[in-house]
């Protein structure tokens, strides 16, 4: 079937099978490979994108159901001049990534959190990241990056 949607502000579309999930459509047909598929079972959160402003796991949503929606992926997060946005920059500044595989999902979840709760507590950040798994960092610096991105003071040294 034919589906059309707006992805990162631009019209996008294509032919999909009923079983095509959104993550496959984004990666294989739109070449937006920043949407990572870690587990493909909706556990890990690497594939989180925004659908009409809501963070969803794109491996667990049919592409057909996203027809007519506005999608934002990690490729749509940078500033207009191509520089990192405030969340991405905070991840770099606070060493919020090591291998980087989970990072697109982490950034998309963080953006959704800060939109609904601009000044979250550390506990709220950790709670919101329940569905995003990182196997490198131990989460500490990810949480720190998100706290910093929300404009709150964090201890500048990565580990002490």
């Amino acid at each position: 079937m034919r589906i059309d949607m707006v992805v990162n502000g631009k019209e996008a579309g294509g032919e999909v099978e009923g079983r095509t999930v959104l993550s496959s459509f984004l990666r294989d047909q739109l070449a937006l490979t920043g949407c990572h598929v870690g587990c493909d079972t909706s556990q890990c959160g690497a594939c989180v994108v925004h659908v009409d402003g809501q963070a969803v796991k794109s491996c667990t949503m049919l592409a057909a159901e996203a027809a007519g929606s506005e999608i934002t992926t990690i490729e749509g997060m940078a500033n207009a001049d191509g520089s990192l946005n405030v969340i991405q920059q905070a991840f770099q500044d606070h060493h919020g990534l090591q291998c980087g595989f989970c990072t697109p999902g982490m950034v998309m979840s963080a953006a959704a959190l800060l939109k609904e709760n601009p000044k979250p507590s550390e506990a709220e950040v950790r709670d919101y990241l329940e569905g995003n798994i990182c196997r490198c960092t131990g989460y500490h610096n990810i949480v720190k990056a998100i706290m910093a991105a929300s404009g709150q003071d964090v201890v500048p040294v990565a580990a002490e």
Binding site: G45, V48, V51, A55, V56, G131
Partner: peptide, 9 residues
């Protein structure tokens, strides 16, 4: 239930 992304769907 689940996590925020699951609760959105």
């Amino acid at each position: 239930i689940g996590d925020p992304a699951v609760r959105a769907r």
